[in-house]
Simulated scan of single mutants.
Amino acid sequence: MITRRTSLNYQDIYLEVFDGHIDTLFNGIDEQFALGFMQHLNFHEDLYKTTAGCIQFLRENWFSHANTEVFLNFVDKIEEWKRRFPAVEIVIFNAPSNLAFFESLIKYLQTEHPNELLLSDPEKEIALIKAYLQINSKKTKPSGFEEIKQAYPDEVMLWTLFSSSFQDADLVNRDFLELWQIETFKAIKLFEYFEKDEQTNEILSRFLEIFSCDSWKTYLKASAGMAIATIDSPNYRGNNFIEVDPQLPFYDLAIEILLQIGIEPIEATIQDDYLYLRNKPIFRTGEAKFQVIYKRFFIEKIFRSLYFQLNVDILAILTPILDTDPPVGF
């Protein structure tokens, strides 16, 4: 069964088009406040998938008491669209827009802004919801539901939602535990191969030396262990924060791995494939504390950083031997 769900955009709520740059809406948003809202969006993603859940999320996790009037205006707009299209879940938040919102906000936070505004918390709440709605505007038609008003509205809605869902299917239909199992299995097999083969053993030794590891199993315990701590299970809610205990025997290794994952990409722009966020899926909030911005990208990156470093080690060993540029694709 296909759940018919669509997200409201800026024009749907404010009845006008926003022509400015999204950074103007982030002006005055501080790091602590922004990361708090990212945490809410990650933690409550099962709540705001329905119209009723979206309203509940806005009431309990977005708008403070000082913004009661603003909240009630949002409820009126959502319920108005719901009355017009009762078979559709009218919402605001969705996984693809979450990622674009996180990515845009993180890039803003990591850029200096000399003319930063001084906003109150209620003003920040309004600014962030406007920014989110503007991101929805970029992902939907500017007029929102204009096409649906035409003949056969049910069929138009059905096929619009059905066709638009493929681009982000891997982001919405995801099993983090399965992803972790696959990546861990691949890493184990790769390490075992490098360990047994004399020609690749030098590469493995070089890799372990870089991370000051006595064995690849120690590296994998640290990296895979941090990754699985973010995954939900029947008895455990995956953590969106990683805090490394200084008493752990591989404390330094764990911090080094996380710093590698959070490294600034050389060139990354806001794109539909979320290149920036895929390269930087965590945000350091303390000496040994990191906030996971998006779990899937974190799990992927924690293993891909391993493959990237091994590739660097291979090039370092082979380049002098070849005395030429390394082969394309190596």
Rank of each mutant, 00 (worst) to 15 (best):
A222Q: 02
G238F: 02
I261N: 06
F194M: 15
F250W: 14
T269P: 02
I188T: 15
K221M: 04
I203F: 06
R237D: 04
A254P: 02
E243D: 05
I203T: 13
L277N: 05
V244C: 07
Q271V: 13
Y193A: 15
Q247L: 13
D273F: 07
A222W: 02
A229T: 15
I270R: 13
K189Q: 14
S233N: 04
I228V: 12
I266F: 07
D252K: 12
T218A: 10
A222Y: 03
S223L: 02
Y219N: 11
G238H: 01
I266P: 06
A229N: 15
T200L: 07
K217H: 08
A227T: 01
D273Y: 11
I228K: 11
Y276K: 01
E195M: 09
E192Y: 12
Q247E: 14
I266K: 09
I263K: 07
D252P: 05
Q199F: 11
L190S: 08
I263E: 08
K217G: 08
E209G: 14
Q247K: 15
F241N: 07
A254E: 12
G262K: 04
N240H: 12
S212L: 13
K221R: 12
L275S: 15
D273C: 09
Y219C: 04
I231Y: 01
F194E: 06
Q271R: 13
I228H: 06
